[in-house]
Amino acid sequence: MKKILPLSATALAALIALSGCSTDTNGSSMPGMDHGSSAMSTAPPTNVGTETGADHNAADAMFAQSMLPHHSQAVEMSDIMLAKPGMDAKIVSLAKDIKAAQGPEITTMTNFLNSWGESTTMTGNHSMAGMLAGTDLDKLKASQGTEAAKMFLTQMTAHHEGALEMAKIEVSGGKNAEAVTLAKSIVSSQEAEIKAMTELLATL
Rank of each mutant, 00 (worst) to 15 (best):
A59G: 15
A100R: 02
K175S: 09
I98Y: 04
A59M: 14
M109S: 10
A148P: 08
E165P: 08
L137Y: 08
S115N: 09
T181V: 12
M109I: 08
I98L: 05
K96I: 00
G117S: 00
N114G: 07
M62N: 12
S127D: 07
K168I: 05
L140K: 08
D60M: 10
I169G: 01
D88E: 00
G117K: 03
G174P: 13
E147N: 09
G103V: 07
E76K: 04
A177Q: 15
M156P: 07
A95D: 13
S143T: 02
G86V: 06
A158T: 07
E165L: 10
A61S: 07
I91G: 05
A158V: 02
A58L: 14
T154K: 13
K150Q: 12
M67K: 08
I91P: 11
I98K: 06
M166V: 01
A89V: 12
K141N: 12
V180L: 14
K139L: 11
P69K: 09
I169D: 11
D97A: 13
T135I: 12
M151A: 04
N111P: 11
T108M: 15
M67Q: 11
T108P: 05
G173I: 04
H159S: 07
S127C: 00
M122P: 08
L68N: 12
M122N: 14
H56I: 11
M81F: 06
T121L: 02
M128R: 01
P69M: 13
L140R: 04
H70I: 00
G86Q: 06
L132E: 02
S78V: 09
D79H: 09
A100Y: 03
V180I: 15
E118K: 12
A101L: 03
H71R: 06
T157L: 00
T108W: 05
A133S: 15
S72V: 09
K90Y: 02
S143H: 05
S93T: 09
N114W: 00
E76V: 04
P69Y: 05
S93V: 00
M87Q: 13
F112E: 01
Q102L: 04
N111Q: 15
A101W: 00
D60G: 13
T120G: 12
M109C: 06
A74D: 11
A64L: 13
M87G: 02
N125S: 14
E147F: 03
M151F: 08
D138I: 00
H56C: 10
T121N: 06
A177M: 10
T146I: 15
G103E: 14
M67D: 10
G145Y: 10
L132C: 01
H159F: 02
N57V: 08
G117N: 00
F63R: 01
N176E: 11
M81Q: 12
M166D: 02
K84W: 10
T121S: 08
A74H: 05
L132H: 04
G86E: 06
M122V: 07
M156K: 01
L94W: 03
L82E: 12
G173M: 10
A59L: 13
T157H: 06
D138V: 03
D136F: 02
L132D: 06
A74M: 09
D79T: 11
E105P: 03
L182F: 03
M77C: 13
